[in-house]
Design a binder for these strands. Structure first.
Lengths: 245, 245
DNA sequence: CTTGACATAGAACAAATTTTCCTGTAATAT
DNA sequence: ATATTACAGGAAAATTTGTTCTATGTCAAG
């Protein structure tokens, strides 16, 4: 028994949720009567009935006994956003961006073949950086945010890493070579060659293999006797192509 | 006569504005009585008195006769934000940053050498997209947000455009070939070759020159007689290198 | 010292708003 | 057929909330 026939939201549920969205930029939520008027429900109790369902299903939260004490749960709402009318969806788009988590990654310098590789200080304060890029957390592979920094690529020397002049490379700080695992793309400083490069890193029996990202290019082998300084793992590369407009 | 002594906001004005800020993420504004309790004002009329002033001075808006019908005016509020307590300021910062700086770009499909190039419908609905990427507006070259969409790159065929398998290409829709200007990086569909490619576009006397981003590679020349379909301008490329962790 | 604008209370009152209770219909499962 | 559930409408009762009026204290200007 107790077979809930209509598991999903009815027309009216949707209409109410839409209305709540519309009220978002009014600064205050609608009252039960207002909901009724706008959705052609003449009875407050029916509105209440629906609100109760929406609450039970997790779409809204209510502070009973506080007038207009209700708010939508954005995450849950997003699940059914496709059923909303176009204008509401458009409005939601800008609003939902607001709940997105983002972080500011400081651009601490430039990286290029013959530039000494900059290192962020351990007590580096993110807000000290002159510049920064805003990255949505959803784009970052890890939730870990410590140790992230960004460098702007100068020159064409990283082309074999598929990284061009002007690109922004987002990296995670690495304190010792041991932290780099095989297959990581790392920023390497080769003191004896006075050279910085971005390569996939593989530790092999006799030497280190530095593999270009471009699969058509050949790897470089560095004997373990040569000094090699891994300064960071590349997390992400951003290229702004259309600089105009 | 009638010299308004205290032109500025008093301690209590600030306290009330702070409270309104705090209520921002509660989903509904406070009632006059609630304001009174939280700010140690015992009389509702006094609260009303202050609200009236704040309204006259443009800090808040009120829908009289609607319960809890009041909202702050963010722009005006920002003017006096420095007088707020630190935690409130911090909360405001993230809130305002979130609304200004982000947008969601829908990932509408994949792009690869032999894949027919997907085109977003003009009435494209953002929430139809399976996925989306969050991009900081500050990273986008233009403030124009219409017509943006994203494609995931499939396969290694775009390597000469410095774009790798798995990269995300953010593009702006182009409705006709004429919209593409010389020097734009565009997504081109070549029907006669059944091929999609990303190249810098140059219109020359006899033919179109499609120039690879990688400066070490040679351009392709397409005679103007051959069909060539520009589907979008590349705005940005995002590569998630570190997929693990 | 008086006056008046300003700030503050308190309380009664009016309006808005939510709750609760009741009645009724249609569809479905038992 | 009967019980149950989803759904609908109405309206009184209970609460919450906003408005208004009166009273009091402060302080600077006259």
């Amino acid at each position: 028994m107790m077979v809930r026939k209509s598991k999903g939201l009815s027309e009216r549920h949707i209409k109410i949720l839409e209305l709540l969205q519309e009220y978002a930029d009014k600064g205050y939520p609608p009252s039960i009567r207002e909901i009724g008027e706008k959705t052609n429900i003449t009875s407050t109790s029916v509105v209440n009935y629906y609100l109760e369902q929406l609450q039970n299903w997790g779409y809204i939260e209510r502070d009973r006994r506080i007038s207009r004490g209700l708010r939508v749960v954005p995450e849950k709402l997003a699940e059914v956003a496709t059923r909303f009318s176009a204008p509401i969806q458009a409005a939601m788009q800008s609003a939902s961006a607001a709940i997105t988590d983002f972080m500011r990654v400081p651009v601490i310098g430039r990286i290029g073949a013959s530039l000494p590789m900059p290192i962020p200080a351990s007590d580096f304060n993110y807000y000290d950086a002159e510049a920064g890029v805003e990255i949505a957390r959803s784009l970052l592979p890890s939730k870990k945010v410590e140790g992230l920094f960004a460098l702007e690529v100068q020159g064409d020397s990283m082309i074999d890493a598929m990284v061009n002049d002007g690109d922004i490379v987002i990296m995670r700080k690495v304190d010792s070579n041991a932290e780099a695992k095989n297959g990581d793309m790392v920023a390497v400083w080769l003191p004896e060659r006075d050279e910085t490069t971005l390569k996939y890193f593989y530790k092999e029996k006799e030497n280190y293999r530095l593999q270009p990202a471009n699969p058509t290019m050949q790897p470089i082998y560095i004997p373990k006797s040569e000094k090699l300084d891994i300064r960071g793992k590349v997390v992400m590369v951003i290229r702004k192509v259309d600089k105009s407009m």
